[in-house]
């Protein structure tokens, strides 16, 4: 089913080699670019299904390349960075990156992120019901079930859960969630978000202290993971 074409934009030969071997062994097709300029050229000629973009490129900052690509390229872009600075990651996500990985990362994690991004891009049909391991969300009727038992959620809790679940596998930043759920006038009231996340976890997680669905991304936001193979 694979044979998706993936473009790696990274100036480090070793990293490109490692990624190429890993991706080949999982039946992906790979093309490589060592600079931002080369990367942009390859995106426009080959139109890959997904781009892995390093933020620290020699010719131009990955942020600039990302912005440039997003003017017309709509397939997933996953950021790879040695920077653990949260601002950097948040900026990339705000500029249209679908996901991020911080070097060093495990290949299992890389593959999971790539699959998740490709699945989303493949345009999951307008599903009315999403079913996960022990959780199901009926978007049409606004019904959430845990182990086949209906979970009572407040309107805000439901809005938050459905937003997260519809973006299964994707990090949503604190700012994005606040804006979507509470509107732009509440963008600085992140304490509500913390409280509602805690409440949601109590209702839908088997162990709220070890959440399997709603994961905290330190200093960045939250990521819903529907399939347990992630992380």
């Amino acid at each position: 089913m694979n044979s998706h074409l993936i473009l790696i934009i990274d100036d480090e030969v070793q990293i490109r080699k490692l990624l190429t071997i890993t991706l080949h062994s999982h039946k992906f097709q790979v093309i490589e670019a060592a600079s931002g300029k080369e990367g942009i050229a390859l995106v426009s000629t080959k139109v890959p299904d997904l781009v892995l973009l390093d933020l620290g490129l020699p010719d131009e900052s990955g942020h600039v390349i990302l912005k440039h690509l997003r003017e017309w390229y709509t397939n997933p872009i996953i950021i790879i960075s040695v920077q653990t600075h949260e601002e950097d990651i948040i900026q990339a996500l705000d500029n249209g990156a679908n996901d991020y990985l911080v070097k060093p990362f495990r290949t299992g994690e890389l593959l999971a992120r790539i699959r998740s991004a490709l699945r989303k891009a493949g345009g999951e049909p307008n599903i009315s019901v999403a079913a996960f391991t022990d959780l199901s969300i009926d978007f049409a009727n606004r019904i959430v079930k845990k182990n086949n038992i209906v979970v009572k959620l407040t309107a805000t809790e439901y809005a938050l859960l459905s937003l997260l679940a519809r973006n299964d596998g994707k990090v949503l930043t604190h700012q994005y969630l606040l804006k979507q759920i509470w509107g732009s006038s509440h963008q600085n009231e992140s304490q509500y978000l913390r409280v509602f996340i805690a409440q949601l976890r109590k209702k839908i997680e088997s162990d709220p202290n070890r959440p399997s669905y709603i994961n905290t991304e330190s200093g960045i936001g939250y990521r819903f993971t529907g399939n347990k193979t992630l992380l």
């Binding site: 604190h174 992140s190 304490q191 913390r194 409280v195 996340i197 805690a198 202290n209 070890r210 905290t216 330190s218 200093g219």
Partner: peptide, 11 residues
Amino acid sequence: DWCDISDLVYK
């Protein structure tokens, strides 16, 4: 930023 200490510790 606002931190849920429980989330911080378990994470």
